[in-house]
């Protein structure tokens, strides 16, 4: 390991780099302020960019002091993690890919390296080389930290949106005394169908519903998996004593179901939500009768 190799009158190369970073913090942050990564994030004032660069340099120096140049979980990084992720996020928002952000971070290395070499003119070349290696490793680790935070940020966003999607996508509507309906919209995956099933069954209990209508007008395609989810929901509702009607099966979907050879035999299906409602009302003994054709309106 180069960073542990030469320990003569000097400290380890990593410590040497740490000392150098502290010595030249001002210059480094000045140069970094001109790099795209800092320039695009701190557009208002250059001083702010320099200040931010300083904080990062300090953190790097601290990491170097503790000899943890290769460890992205080093304590020193925690201080600047938020700062780095903010910069990474700003670049991503500007439409840059993760790889480009990574290159931006990498672009911070050459200026520091030049300064480092210039700073050690009288030292043996071996030590200079070791120091440069340690610096490169350190910068690489920082690059890793930036990417890590950027990725976890994206992951958190996806997770948040997934939960939001689940919340908005499953309203249970009371259509009549004892009749509830769930209009399903979008593709059903197992997680979503689980939520649908739970909310529907809860509604069945709360509303004392004898009929539950699953309207799949908004479901673009039905494959065997979606059909299986539907069957499960229907079976669970039946176990609780409610009857489940599936409505909104468009001709194309009916065709697909037949072609796939899916057996919805035990499930009551209707073409539209209106038909399903009419069926449920009829079963409840609440038939809807048109007013007399004469137009008197009262019956």
């Amino acid at each position: 390991m180069p960073e542990h190799a030469s320990t003569g009158q000097h400290g380890s190369p990593a410590r040497e780099v740490g000392a150098f970073l502290r010595r030249r913090a001002e210059q480094i942050s000045q140069r970094w302020a001109d790099e795209p990564l800092f320039r695009t994030v701190f557009t208002v004032s250059r001083d702010e960019a320099v200040e931010a660069g300083r904080i990062v340099v300090d953190a790097l120096a601290q990491v170097a002091d503790t000899d943890q140049v290769h460890d992205p979980d080093a304590a020193g990084f925690t201080v600047v993690r938020e700062q780095l992720s903010r910069m990474g996020a700003a670049r991503s928002r500007a439409g840059f890919t993760t790889a480009q952000v990574s290159n931006d971070v990498d672009a911070l290395r050459p200026p520091v390296e030049n300064l480092l070499v210039a700073d050690l003119p009288d030292e043996p070349t071996e030590l200079v080389r070791d120091c440069t290696t340690a610096l490169t490793v350190l910068m690489g680790t920082m690059r890793l930290v930036v990417l890590e935070t950027a990725l976890s940020e994206g992951q958190a966003l996806i997770e948040r949106q997934r939960l939001q999607l689940m919340e908005v996508a499953t309203p249970v509507i009371k259509l009549w005394d004892g009749i509830v309906a769930v209009p399903l919209i979008g593709t059903l995956d197992s997680a979503r169908s689980q939520v649908v099933m739970e909310t529907l069954l809860e509604a069945v209990v709360d509303q004392h519903a004898r009929f539950a209508i699953l309207d799949i007008t908004g479901v673009p395609t039905v494959d065997s998996l979606v059909a299986q989810h539907l069957m499960k929901t229907v079976a669970a509702a039946r176990l609780m004593g409610a009857e489940c009607v599936v409505s909104g099966i468009r001709p194309a979907i009916a065709q697909t179901i037949v072609q796939l050879g899916l057996d919805l035999g035990t499930v009551i299906t209707r073409a539209s939500l209106a038909d399903a409602l009419a069926y449920a009302l009829h079963e409840l003994g609440a038939d809807i009768i048109n007013a007399t054709p004469g137009g008197a309106g009262h019956r």
Binding site: Q194, M197, E198, L201, E202, V204, V205, K232, A235, A236, A237, L239, M240, G241
Partner: peptide, 10 residues
């Protein structure tokens, strides 16, 4: 039957 029980059975 409770919803959770129904789901488990299914």
């Amino acid at each position: 039957m409770r919803p959770a029980v129904a789901i488990t059975l299914v």
